[in-house]
């Protein structure tokens, strides 16, 4: 039984309504998901202004791709978070290319950014607790490797250069970390 199904049904129905052309469902989806999505995007980009632009782009992508969403293949929460993460990582890379100062963000990516320090209880509060418990249960070296790959969109080679470890060791840490997370989030 997936621990995330409770809050996922509503989101899945909204995506299906958007796919059917029910425009008001987009606003309901925004109300249900904008806080976690904006928090994620903000943590990845580290830039509030860029995050606002990315959030708009993400909902445009959700609107245009809603027809491709298959509830049998992926949970709705994971689907929207994946779209937001991919777009935010892309913007983070763009910021890095355009501003060398943004290099500093690589380490910041594994730390909490500007998000609300005390998240209010919401539709995802139980899911978040489970996800946090899972990532916190990882050995520190695996957690850092997974978080740099996820939040900074870094390759194993880039992570290896960042933390001064062999590339093969980073790949192993990511593999072991992801296997453990998959077991915990089953």
């Amino acid at each position: 039984m997936c621990p995330f199904q409770e809050s996922d049904v509503e989101l899945s129905e909204l995506i299906q309504k958007i796919a059917a052309g029910e425009a008001p469902a987009l606003l309901s989806l925004y109300d249900a998901s904008s806080r976690p999505l904006f928090g994620l995007i903000l943590r990845i980009t580290g830039d509030r202004f860029a995050s606002e632009e990315v959030l708009v782009e993400v909902y445009k992508l959700i609107e245009s791709r809603a027809g491709q969403y298959d509830a049998k293949q992926a949970l709705a929460t994971a689907w929207v978070l994946s779209i937001a993460r991919a777009r935010a990582v892309e913007r983070r890379r763009q910021i890095r290319r355009e501003s060398p100062r943004a290099e500093r963000m690589e380490t910041a990516a594994t730390e909490e950014g500007e998000g609300d320090s005390q998240s209010t209880p919401g539709p995802y509060s139980d899911d978040r607790k489970r996800a946090l418990a899972a990532i916190e249960s990882l050995p520190p070296e695996q957690r850092v490797a997974v978080e740099l790959a996820y939040y900074a969109g870094m390759s194993p080679g880039e992570i290896a250069a960042q933390i001064g470890q062999p590339r093969a060791a980073i790949k192993t840490r990511i593999r072991l970390g992801m296997i453990k997370l998959a077991e915990l989030l089953k």
């Binding site: 928090g39 903000l42 989030l185």
Partner: peptide, 28 residues
């Protein structure tokens, strides 16, 4: 992919500015 989908929940919520919601409301 399931793991990647949910790792995003480990980031704290953040309140987007109110004007963005109004932008969506106008779009809808």
């Amino acid at each position: 992919e399931g793991v990647v989908g949910f790792l995003g929940l480990t980031a704290s919520d953040a309140e987007p500015p109110a004007y963005l919601r109004e932008l969506f409301a106008a779009h809808v």
